[in-house]
Structure formats: structure tokens, C-alpha cells
């Protein structure tokens, strides 16, 4: 059906060129598996945009398409374009994308385990050739994450989950990105840690004026943090709008915030499920 229409009509009412724009993006794995089916979305400069969806909805695939790291998993963009400042970047190599100011913090933290904390950060600053800039960014990361300073010379593989997530975020900040892509920063972390990470992301996005594209399964976090939200199901955007409005949406409350009345097997839930199915077909 007309997924593009959903994106087009519900896009924020601004005339500015969005910082990042996906137009009808389609991604295929192994030349047969269609993981992303015509997704259109816009991320406005200076905002936090969330992409919400369950496991396997295609969230990570979209992010990998943006940072051009699909090939290692045999995926490719089969249709549509990705634009940065209105400039197509769909076919650029991964390192070029990074140089254009897009930084991707991968899911599951994925720090360089055999490298020290410091080396992880330095590796992330690879595209920065100005040494003084590297040092000043290192200092900045230490200010945001004082905890990392105490672990500076330790191997990243030995850090706790929360510390690794801090390191992963710190790595993302090394390049002074214009767009920071966060893939499930809350995944597998203790609630205290999640709060800490959430606080830091908010702080960073405000103080460093970084635009953030946040991917989450945890709707509460995604909606709290973001200004605008897209809901992805089965590789399609099924709903988008201001996060404050989305949070009030009855279906979202039930499916993602777990606020269903009664048990999940009752009639109401099934009815909602049917209604949700209608959006997707």
C-alpha cells in the first residue's frame, strides 16, 4: 500500500531540508529477504528522533543502511535514497559517511574488546587527523563519563555492560558528529544504568547540539527521550508523529508500553491486534 504517503503527510510541518531523509528505502538481504520495505522518514536538525519497533522489525537494518555497513551481512539497498542535507549519500562507503558527520553507535555495545578504553576512543577518532582536536575530544568524553577515566588503561572487554555502553557512546562523540545514531542503548542494562545513559544522551544532544536518531525496543525510553517518533513494524513505518502524541496513542500504550487493561488474551487485545494488522497490509 502507500507507505510513502504516511511518511509524507505526517512529516513535521517545516520547510527546512531535514538533516537526514530516507525516501522509500528498501533493503534486501541475500537478494531475497526484504527486510525494509519502502521506509520514508525525516530527521530534523537539532532534534531527537526515535525509531520504535519490536525485534526483527528492521530497525537495525535501517541504521546499517544509513552508515553503509550492510555488505558484511550480504544486504543491499535495493531501492530508495538516503539524503544528508538533501544530498544523496546512499552509495557512499562507510568511511565517507563517517566523514560526513554521521556516527553510528552499534547495538549490543560492541566495544573493541582487546583494546584499552583510551585506544577504543582513539580508534573511533580515526578520521580526525588533527591531533589537538583528538586530545580535546578525549577530554570532553572524560568530562561526560568520569567513570571511564578511572578505567582508562584497562581493556574494554573487562568493563561492565554499563561501562561498555558509556564507552560506546563516548566513541560516538569522538568525531563531533552532526548525527548520532544510537542503536538500542538501553539493551541489556540494569534500570539504574538505563537512567544514567538516558540522562547523558539528553545532556549530549542539548549541549553538543547533536541530532540524535535513536532506535529502541523500549518504548518508554524512546518516547521520553525523543521529539518525534516513527513506529516500525515488519519493515514498514506504521505510525509517526510527535512523541508526546504517540505516547497518548491507545494502541502504542498497549503494544509497546504494556498498559493493557486486563490480560493480553482478552478480546480487546485481539481487537487491537486486528486493527494493528490493518495498518500493515
Amino acid at each position: 500500500m502507500s507507505q510513502t504517503e504516511v511518511g509524507a503527510t505526517a512529516a513535521p510541518a517545516t520547510v527546512r531540508t531535514p538533516l537526514l531523509e530516507l525516501k522509500n528505502l528498501e533493503v534486501t538481504y541475500n537478494q531475497v529477504v526484504l527486510a525494509v520495505r519502502g521506509v520514508s522518514m525525516e530527521v530534523q536538525e537539532g532534534t531527537v528522533c526515535a525509531l520504535l519497533g519490536a525485534n526483527g522489525a528492521g530497525k537495525t537494518t535501517i541504521l546499517r543502511a544509513i552508515s553503509s555497513v550492510l555488505t558484511s551481512q550480504d544486504g543491499e539497498v535495493t531501492d530508495g535514497t538516503i539524503c544528508l542535507d538533501g544530498d544523496p549519500i546512499t552509495d557512499l562507503a562507510a568511511d565517507k559517511i563517517v566523514r560526513r558527520g554521521i556516527c553510528h553507535v552499534p547495538e549490543g555495545r560492541q566495544v573493541f574488546r582487546d583494546l584499552t578504553v583510551e585506544e577504543n576512543l582513539r580508534a573511533a577518532a580515526f578520521t580526525l587527523t588533527d591531533r589537538r582536536k583528538v586530545e580535546s575530544r578525549l577530554e570532553m568524553v572524560q568530562e561526560y563519563f568520569p567513570k571511564l577515566t578511572t578505567l582508562w588503561k584497562g581493556k574494554a572487554g573487562y568493563l561492565s555492560g554499563g561501562e561498555q555502553q558509556m564507552l560506546a557512546l563516548g566513541r560516538g562523540l569522538m568525531l563531533d558528529p552532526r548525527l548520532l545514531i544510537l542503536d538500542e542503548p538501553s539493551l541489556g542494562l540494569a534500570p539504574v544504568m538505563v537512567d544514567e545513559i538516558t540522562r547523558i544522551v539528553t545532556e549530549v544532544s542539548r549541549q553538543e547540539r547533536v541530532t540524535v536518531l535513536l532506535v529502541e525496543q523500549n518504548a518508554q525510553i524512546a518516547l521520553d527521550l525523543s521529539d518525534y517518533c516513527y513506529v516500525l513494524e515488519n519493515g514498514r513505518i506504521v505510525l509517526d508523529g510527535r512523541s508526546s502524541e504517540i505516547a497518548e496513542n491507545q494502541d502504542i500504550k498497549e503494544f509497546y508500553l504494556g498498559a493493557s487493561e486486563g490480560s493480553s488474551t482478552n478480546y480487546a487485545a485481539i481487537k487491537h491486534y486486528r486493527r494493528r494488522k490493518r495498518w500493515m497490509s
Partner: peptide, 13 residues
């Protein structure tokens, strides 16, 4: 870094 995790190394540019 590349030896440690090629995929992420790519993401770091």
C-alpha cells in the same frame, strides 16, 4: 581495532 571487530571499525570510519 579492525582485528578486534571489523564491522564496528567500519562504522567508526
Amino acid at each position: 581495532a579492525t582485528a578486534s571487530n571489523q564491522d564496528v571499525a567500519q562504522m567508526m570510519g
